[in-house]
Nucleic acid binder design. Structure first.
Lengths: 110, 110
DNA sequence: TTTATTTATCGTAATATTGCAATATTATAA
DNA sequence: TTATAATATTGCAATATTACGATAAATAAA
């Protein structure tokens, strides 16, 4: 079969996994790192930097845009992409809440 | 075609995306949250808690174990699973380094 | 040993993801 | 208008993921 219904899980669980899924491909991690590194917005040279074909990069950018982590600004024939600061911060809060759960396992099994 | 070769990306990018991929399914998020919540190790009642079939849960547990975030201890006929504290902490450091990149976009495009 | 219990594995179907060639779209320049 | 340039979309093939029934493996209890 396919995927479990999202109704099986809480909104927060679905949100966390949605963010994580976006980070779950090295190309998207590389795109985001590059967007951070150049300290400025970028458009098409991601194709050269990452080493994937233009439609593939465009598709990854679309997913990043869909979840709100980047935004694109049309500038002439090109599009300038950059991190969506507010949404990135919000995402960080959600993920950190999950990652920072207390570890209190005090049984003998572990 | 298939996936991009992992050699296209840095070890760190591949590591980040590997962790993220594991978190990229709500069932695994739910399993981990439950392991944290019960403050103790657990084995088979995850099937009841999550609501997926036993082979499916076993498969998700295997992925969590493979990447090192949980460990399982055989106790009689059941297996007691729990968070692997050291590895969880190490994973957190890796992910946080990625999430906490500075946002310094000072151009007009965003 | 036989039986019951728990978990893991196998096999397979359904679905999702990834990558790219071809093409369309959009905007600028000539 | 006609090129040119940059990006997006479409269509499709290859692969990966997910889910579960059936079954195997391991252990404990009778």
């Amino acid at each position: 079969m396919g995927l479990a219904k999202s109704e099986m899980f809480t909104d927060k669980q679905n949100l966390i996994s949605s963010y994580a899924k976006v980070f779950g491909h090295p190309a998207r991690v590389a795109i985001l790192e590059h967007l951070f590194a150049i300290n400025s917005c970028i458009c098409g040279d991601l194709v050269d930097v990452i080493g994937l074909a233009q439609p593939t990069i465009s598709q990854h950018l679309k997913e990043l845009k869909n979840i709100g982590l980047i935004k694109g600004n049309v500038e002439g024939t090109s599009v300038c992409y950059c991190i969506h600061k507010e949404n990135w911060t919000a995402m960080k809060a959600t993920i950190n809440e999950f990652l920072n759960q207390d570890i209190n396992c005090n049984t003998d099994c572990c």
